[in-house]
Design a protein around this nucleic acid. Structure first.
Lengths: 253, 253
DNA sequence: CGGTCTGTTGAAGGATTTCAACACTCGTGG
DNA sequence: CCACGAGTGTTGAAATCCTTCAACAGACCG
């Protein structure tokens, strides 16, 4: 078993952008707000009006943005970096529900009701986000029905994706689930311009285990297997996809 | 092992109401529409206007209402009976995502986008529902922002519940998952007025397996175990809950 | 340069599935 | 009205997948 890792001397495969040197200028804020799918029908003037209600906040990698079962007061939009949504269990095991990109919405989605965060949010890299009080957002929803329809649509998509995950957890082997999550992460976070096909996330075996509902050891074993087959390359907290086709064959096996 | 089943001679424990003798009068339709949480802020006149757009449809038990990956054109509201939402797998195994009651919404939830049903819907009993063209519903959403907010809220709740299920599938043993689903079904479909604590559903071992992502055999073994412990009574397609407290202890073990 | 975090691998044990046989219930049609 | 057959539930035993415990190796950080 020769699992050769190509070391680039002095440079780790995964380059993580730090928050230093990043600043949330008005232009960047407006650009990111306009990127949010459900603000796309609004005029510049309306966007600026909405922008007034948002406040920028920064988090360093691994900082907790909010915790499960806290009072849910804020709706947030990722501007820079990636955010991990997760649930904790009494046994200390975490479940990763989703990983968010710039433009994604999180936090207090449900405007009515008990307003308790159903999951925790943690900065997966250095993060900048915009947050809005949920009462203010409620006002926007009432005023602009297109925004509500957009949010509804995004929520419906996430529901579909969650139900897809339920099906996979119920019927797929761990190997299939890991092949699948690698494909999905590659589609979402793969750098298509870069030939080394790296997933742009500090992805650990533990993370993979938490996303697929298995143990880190099993995740490691399966990743080793994929490496032997030449399907992936991987090191400490980085993964790159060599053979996308073989991966999707495994999921459809 | 004495699993005594109290037979009521000539009468099965579970009485299923047939659709014969049921008719969707205007009054019943309005009553059910008013029951839908996100129509609650509308006036009678507005309700009547919306009612015009809905058409009633009837399905016999086990009839398929729509199939996964069909074109999604209709949004539906359950008026009478129960509906099973499920996903099929190539291996022939089904996953039950949800069981719906009168007042619940299903079908083409996402108003924009590709409009493909992400799951199948099947009549779990004889069913009457109202359906509306999704374009017509889109018009309503644009006109009444309160409706959009209500639907958003319902969708957000379902998303939460799906994520809860993901956590349970990832971390709970089959025994805990079955205890949990029994409790949830009992809360939703238990007849509180009736002393025999029956879950008002034709619940088979296969159904339980499809809801918890296990095999019918394992579900049967665990149900047998619960019977021995005096926690439940159960026969062919019926379950009643004797000891709710013990069940919730099992889920929290 | 040590210490901590991450990844790897082995081996034993446990949970669950699968295959198989059988019992029972219910509806149907003779 | 009874008998049949399909559908449903039960149970055993073997096989499989996965977890858990444990030890160790390598990478990164200060």
């Amino acid at each position: 078993m020769f699992s050769i890792i190509f070391k680039m001397p002095g440079s780790k495969p995964l380059q993580i952008r730090k928050i230093e040197g990043h600043s949330c200028t008005i232009d960047l804020r407006l650009e990111k707000l306009a990127m949010v799918p459900f603000f796309k029908d609004l005029s510049i003037t309306q966007l600026q009006e909405i922008n007034e209600k948002f406040r920028a906040a920064h988090f360093l990698k691994n900082e907790v943005i909010y915790r499960e079962s806290e009072q849910a007061r804020m709706l947030r939009v990722v501007v820079f970096g990636t955010v991990k949504l997760l649930k904790h269990t009494e046994a200390g095991k975490d479940i990763v529900l989703d990983i968010l990109q710039p433009g994604d919405l999180f936090g207090s989605l449900s405007v009515l009701g008990d307003k308790i965060y159903p999951e925790s949010a943690q900065a997966y890299s250095d993060v900048c986000n915009l947050s809005i009080n949920s009462d203010d957002f409620y006002t926007i929803l009432k005023k602009y029905s297109s925004v509500g329809i957009g949010v509804l649509n995004m929520t419906a998509e996430r529901l579909q994706s969650a139900q897809q995950q339920i099906q996979e957890l119920s019927t797929f082997s761990v190997e299939k689930r890991i092949a699948n999550i690698l494909l999905r992460l590659y589609k979402k976070f793969g750098e298509n311009d870069n030939p080394n096909k790296l997933i742009q996330l500090p992805l650990s075996r533990m993370d993979l285990a938490d996303m697929t509902g298995t143990s880190p050891e099993t995740a490691s074993r399966i990743m080793s297997h994929f490496k032997e087959e030449g399907i992936i390359k991987s090191g400490r907290q980085w993964v790159s996809i060599l053979d996308e086709k073989k991966l999707s064959e495994i999921t459809n096996l």
